[in-house]
């Protein structure tokens, strides 16, 4: 078990950052909070500031204009922080990889701990991703 997995066992506070995404992943993340999936029962919640967060969820491709802002958000985060790339765009660039504003997959910009692929990943998939990460041996 790594250091991060040891630190974050319960009640993760999540900050959600949309970097050039299409809103699909963002809405599905919000869906996790609503009664059907209700991750708040595990003490997880979305917070309004990165300075309160344990987990940084990033969706969408890294666009040129957002590149410095993503780095800045990551710098402001309290360490250690778990970064999860949500969706095909954040993981690889997906169908936008040929775009003139695309500046590389997320892991070329900031270190990424877990990837949840899919377009968009279902809320179940996101939960499964987090659980898999936490159970990593």
């Amino acid at each position: 078990m790594g250091f991060k997995e040891k630190c974050f066992k319960k009640s993760l506070w999540v900050f959600h950052m949309s970097a050039g995404s299409c809103n699909n992943c963002d809405i599905e993340i919000l869906d996790c909070l609503t009664p059907k999936f209700d991750i708040e029962r595990f003490g997880m919640k979305l917070v309004g500031s990165i300075r309160h967060a344990d987990v940084l969820l990033v969706t969408g491709i890294v666009t040129r204009k957002l590149l410095p802002r993503i780095k800045e958000v990551y710098d402001q985060a309290p360490k250690p922080i778990v970064v999860i790339a949500i969706g095909a765009c954040a993981c690889t660039g997906g169908m936008f990889k040929d775009s003139y504003t695309f500046k590389g997959p997320l892991d070329t910009v900031i270190p990424v701990d877990a990837y949840v692929p899919g377009c968009p990943p279902k809320p179940e998939a996101m939960l499964a991703g987090v659980v898999k990460f936490l159970n990593k041996k």
Binding site: T63, K65, F96, D98, S99, T101
Partner: peptide
């Protein structure tokens, strides 16, 4: 401009069928 993904240009490099997606 934060979310500008250059979709209009991207569409010009896809076939008519692919543009849907």
């Amino acid at each position: 401009g934060y979310n500008h993904r250059g979709i209009e240009k991207l569409c010009q490099s896809k076939t008519f069928e692919q543009v849907f997606y």
